[in-house]
Nucleic acid binder design. Sequence first.
DNA 1: CGAATTTGACCCGCGC
DNA 2: GCGCGGGTCAAATTCG
Length: 313
Amino acid sequence: MDCSSWINTSLDLSINPRRVHEEAVPKVVESKLFSLGMPKFNVEEESTSDLEEELKRVSAENKKLAEMLSVVCENYNTLRSHLMEYMRKNGEKEVSPTSKKRKSESSNNNNSNLMGTNNGNPESSSTDEESCKKPREETVKAKISRVYVRTESSDTSLIVKDGYQWRKYGQKVTRDNPYPRAYFKCSFAPSCPVKKKVQRSVDDHSVLLATYEGEHNHPQASSQMEATSGSGRSVTLGSVPCSASLSTSTPTLVTLDLTKSKGSNDSKSTKPKGDSPKVPQVLVEQMATSLTTDPNFRAALVAAISGRLLHNN
DNA sequence: CGAATTTGACCCGCGC
DNA sequence: GCGCGGGTCAAATTCG
């Protein structure tokens, strides 16, 4: 696993106080020895069992952390491979002459789509070309972001749970994709003008592509409930049952569901790691660095890990 | 029975 | 101007 070179493992996880405490214990004991003037070996016998117990606990905790780190690294590699895969696919689409009318839209959105994961706020990186082309949307000033969600291959529904409530108002089979496209409006419409389109990827039908237009002008209605419920495709952080949603501060984040389904172990996921030479390695490195240095991402990761620790304890 | 979903019809922009 | 295709509407249907 090469993630050690990618992930800055020096995250400021707030788990060190316990370690400090552990180091402080012997010193306290030792100081007591001198202050009480007691023979040192007696207390040593008493404290040995405590220390052994502490050692066991620390070892167990260390093991847990190592496991969690491996999971995080695994998820990271999966995310990376997915990212490379999509970048490669989008790159092919970009040069494809078949998309005529919506060509500019798709090619323009490629960048925002791909780079949307960089700063954790894809909407801020989204562009407004769409509104330039469509005068109707100028009043809305819709910001567009795209979200890829991996689902079970057998799951044919077009439901992407993102913490908001949506009302489906249409479904259409488009020309360039045999899978139907579902149209949703925010349930708070018309006060909330946000729309989203959900369609399965042509290349990988286990992947849902959700396109969001606009910004919610209200908080998430049921993010907690849906994020923690086992049903549907709520936003999760890999296989870690992460209850700390990454979207708490930025409600319409790009979310990549890396649910460890069997479908994620398909041929595309089991490909050799270095088989996406079309993607500039530097770009991927930049994105990974952006993720690992993003305070929001780190905070979410810390929350997830600490939550997991508390849960296990 | 009200809310949500489905689905065929319609609208509108774009290319030829 | 016409046809195509994406997006939206709204009546019908389903669901809780």
